[in-house]
Amino acid sequence: MTQNKETTMEGVFFLTGKDFTNAGAASCELKSILEKMEVEHSAIRRAAIAAFEAEMNIIIYTPAGMMKYSITPDHVKVVFQDMGHGIEDIELAMTEGYSTAPDYIREMGFGSGMGLPNIKKNTDEMKISSMPGAGTTLEFIIKLRQEKDNENL
C-alpha cells in the first residue's frame, strides 16, 4: 500500500431525486477518488457498489439528499442523508426482494429489492435510521486492511 498514512480525504455530493441522467455519477466519482488514493481493489469495488445502491435509493425514492464520504488509512465511511418520507419498517426493507418501487423504476433495472441487502453484503458496518416524514440516514464503513482481503469477496 502506498496510501498516504497522514491523509484523511473528505467530501460531499448533492443528489437530486428523479435525476436519472446523473444517477450513479457520485458513486463513480467516489470510485475514481479511491483509485487515485490507491486503496486496495476489493475495498474500492465494495465501496463503489454499496454507494451506488444507496445513491440509487435516494434518486428513486426521495426528492433530494446528500452523500458524504471520508477516507482514512483505516476505513472508507460514507453517510447518506435524504429528505424522503422515511422507511416505515427497516427490517422489512432489508428483506431481499422486498420493494416498493413502481413499475417504471423496475423497467429501468432498479427497484428489485436488492439494494439494501446488497449494501449490507458489501460493507463491514451498516447503520440505518429513519423516521417516517423525517428522512433516512444510512451510513456504512468499509475497513481497509493492509494484508488480507475481506472474505466477503
Binding site: T21, F52, E53, M56, G109, M114, N118
Partner: peptide, 24 residues
C-alpha cells in the same frame, strides 16, 4: 437487466450483455 444484479453478482472484467441502454 437489473443493475443491482450486475453490481451484486458480476465479477470484474466481464462482458455485460443487457437489454437496457440508459446511462446508468
Amino acid at each position: 437487466d437489473l443493475m443491482s444484479d450486475v453490481l451484486s453478482f458480476s465479477l470484474t472484467d466481464s462482458l455485460l450483455i443487457t437489454g437496457l441502454v440508459d446511462k446508468t
